[in-house]
């Protein structure tokens, strides 16, 4: 009875110890683990100055513009509080849409725009047939807005 209790305690202690260590480490590196910054965080100067970082948010409706005959695009990324203009030159992923989530990797230009070198689309967890989505939109349930986080 006693040795079994002891083994149980040992296993539990090891688990608690490792869990605590990992938890504290993650806590300490929280900032480095941040995969992307929101426009609010970017404008508040949270990303390290002069370094590349990822910017995440929603592509604002109606903000995308592309010069005809060029790969250059510009759009505005917002987190529904603040927004940041982004420029990018290159091919956009299939799921890049206005109103959808996006993660851009790049840096801040002196003029306050974000220059992206890579743009990734972040999709939401909603799956439905196109007809269903249309129906929902007609009934006034904007599905796309849910991609905010």
């Amino acid at each position: 009875m006693t040795p079994r209790r002891q083994r149980m305690l040992t296993v539990a202690l090891v688990l608690v110890g490792v869990g605590l260590a990992v938890g504290l480490t993650l806590q300490a590196f929280q900032e480095n683990l941040l995969y992307f910054y929101s426009p609010t965080q970017a404008l508040a100067g949270e990303p390290p100055e002069g370094r590349k970082f990822r910017l995440g948010g929603l592509v604002e409706e109606g903000s995308m513009s592309r010069q005809p005959g060029e790969l250059k695009v510009s759009f505005v990324v917002s987190d529904l509080e603040q927004s940041l203009p982004v420029t990018y030159e290159g091919v956009l992923p299939d799921l890049f849409r206005e109103g959808q989530g996006v993660v851009a990797h790049g840096y801040m230009e002196p003029d306050g725009t974000f220059r992206a070198e890579e743009v990734l689309a972040k999709h939401d967890e909603n799956y439905m047939a196109p007809e269903v989505a249309e129906l929902l939109a007609e009934q006034g349930h904007p599905v796309k807005e849910q991609a905010a986080n």
Binding site: L26, Q30, L33, L34, Y35, F36, Y37, S38, G56, V103, L120, K122, H123, D124, E125, N126, Y127, N149
Partner: peptide, 11 residues
Amino acid sequence: MWWSSLHQGPS
């Protein structure tokens, strides 16, 4: 949930 991620939430 803990960190911002490219991966979407659970369906």
